[in-house]
Simulated scan of single mutants.
Amino acid sequence: MDNIKRENGFTLIEVLAVIIIIGVLGAIVIPKLGSSTANARRKADVATAHEVKAALDRFQLETGMYPKDDDLTVTEGTVTSSKLIPKYISTLDKSTTQQIVPEENKGFGVVKIKADATDPTDIVIPDTKTNTIMIYLFGDGFAAEVRAYDESLDNVLWTSAN
């Protein structure tokens, strides 16, 4: 009986222990990877919002005012402007934004705001948010603000007002 040849290899218990350990590690790591991807997409949209604000500021420095309400038009998340694009920024379309949102919320939105007639410095940004990156323009070229929103359009990720 002492001469029974033992086969080299792993027992069923050892193999099951390794599978359980790999499963636990996978359950911890996979959600972290998913959240880091979403975080990277948010940061990319914030960077895009920074670029848009910088382009608007360059426009303002050269022309003396921000684009007026008729200088920018938006159609299905794509902004067109013969005065701003491509001289100050190359493109503002749906492919520029990165967050995973419904198709109607991709890209850019433009809100044209009229100043208060009694006090033109009293500016109130409306709660209008249709796209992940919103451009708020004042009709007289007095000011412009850019905001980047999260996937749900509930939280401001970045605003040029700060």
Rank of each mutant, 00 (worst) to 15 (best):
T159H: 02
G23Q: 13
E7I: 12
Y88Q: 00
R147N: 06
L153E: 05
V101P: 03
K83P: 00
T96H: 01
A144M: 06
I125H: 00
S35W: 08
E7L: 05
I133L: 03
V46K: 14
G64H: 07
A40H: 06
K83M: 02
P102D: 14
K106D: 08
I4G: 01
E104V: 12
T80K: 05
L33M: 15
F10D: 06
G26C: 07
R41V: 04
V156M: 08
R147P: 01
L72V: 08
E62T: 08
T118D: 13
V79A: 10
G139K: 06
P120V: 08
S152N: 01
M1S: 11
K5D: 07
D57M: 05
T78M: 11
P102N: 14
N155L: 14
M65H: 10
V18D: 11
V156I: 15
K32L: 15
D70G: 09
V18Q: 11
D69M: 02
A49H: 10
S35H: 06
I13W: 07
N105A: 12
D154R: 12
I100H: 11
T130Y: 03
V52K: 01
Y136P: 04
T91Y: 02
F138N: 02
D122Y: 12
L153M: 07
I89S: 00
I28T: 11
S35A: 15
A144R: 03
T96K: 02
L137K: 05
I21V: 09
S95R: 09
I19M: 10
G77W: 00
R41K: 15
T63M: 12
T63Q: 13
N162K: 12
G34S: 10
M134I: 05
K43N: 15
N3T: 14
E14F: 08
E76D: 15
L72Y: 04
A38E: 15
I28L: 15
D69P: 00
V146P: 00
T80H: 04
R6G: 05
T128P: 02
K114G: 02
V111E: 06
L153N: 09
K114E: 03
V29W: 10
L61Y: 07
S95N: 11
Q98A: 10
T97S: 10
D69N: 13
V124Q: 05
I21N: 11
E14I: 13
N131C: 04
